[in-house]
């Protein structure tokens, strides 16, 4: 796709968003939409700008730190777990029910417990973030490893290659599209996890900032913080896409062929 064509594809969604913002602004100014219920876009922008840039940066970096650490832990746990699940049916049958139980537990409800047991440090926040982020990773990676075309696995076996080579040189690369699809979901979930943790107990971070703003009825400022969170999520999502495009350009091709 050419650059001009790509730009043209952006026009309809951008126009839709612009129209909604104008409608929203108009409803606030002339339609009698009360500011305490839903502040106008311009009020939100103003509130956002009124906060010191250094303060934004501090909260932003605090949240990003939890997101990145939590996601890293989730990835570090789910990679070996996915290998084990793919490798042994017994392990899969042992572990899967536990994974489903963890996934079914509302992490928001665990957060206060963990904060109390671990104390108000980064540790419980990272754990909460990792718990929310890791399920799609395990499922995605193990699916990718298991869905490796059987003839490729047979090729590996017919060459008498050791099991680790089969995983490293065939199953892992074959799973790359699955892994990135899982990372895209997981990384945005990690942002939710970090904010949930910050709601419960934190002295900094965007989640904390939202709570602090609402405590003083600074609704436009809370909305501005919300916009920053959306930007973080979108940024991390597109960073993932970019990494995949730069490191594994072929994997995008096979993904669209499917």
């Amino acid at each position: 796709m050419s650059a001009a064509a790509r730009l043209r594809r952006l026009v309809p969604p951008a126009a839709t968003i612009a129209a909604l913002l104008i409608l929203w602004e108009a409803a606030s100014r002339f339609g009698g939409l009360p500011a305490w219920l839903l502040p106008s876009p311009s009020a939100i922008v103003q509130a956002g700008l009124s906060v010191d840039a250094g303060q934004w940066l501090r909260h932003l970096l605090a949240t990003l730190r939890i997101v990145v650490l939590g996601f890293a832990v989730a990835l570090a746990v789910s990679l070996p777990l996915a290998f084990a699940i793919t490798q042994s049916d017994l392990i899969r049958r042992c572990v899967y029910p536990i994974l489903v139980v963890i996934q079914s537990t509302p992490i928001v409800a665990i957060a206060p417990i963990l904060i109390v047991t671990f104390g108000p440090t980064d540790v419980p926040r990272v754990i909460i973030t990792a718990m929310i982020a890791f399920f799609p990773l395990v499922v995605g990676i193990s699916t990718g490893l298991a869905e490796t075309p059987p003839e490729l696995v047979e090729l590996s076996r017919s060459l008498g290659a050791p099991r680790w080579r089969q995983y490293w040189e065939i199953r892992m690369p074959a799973a790359v599209p699955y892994i990135f699809a899982a990372v895209k979901i997981s990384i945005t979930l990690a942002v939710i996890g970090a904010v949930v943790a910050e709601f419960v107990a934190a002295e900094e971070g965007i989640g904390y900032f939202i709570r602090a703003s609402t405590a003083f009825f600074k609704i436009p400022r809370a909305f501005a913080a919300l916009a920053v969170l959306v930007a973080i999520s979108l940024g991390l999502f597109h960073l993932t896409v970019l990494v995949q495009r730069l490191l594994f350009p072929r994997s995008l091709k096979t993904a669209t062929d499917k």
Partner: peptide
């Protein structure tokens, strides 16, 4: 598996990457 046996599969079994 032996080194002196080559195998050609029903599907080409090429690594797409």
């Amino acid at each position: 598996p032996r080194d002196d046996i080559g195998m050609v599969f029903q599907r080409p079994a090429l690594l797409p990457w």
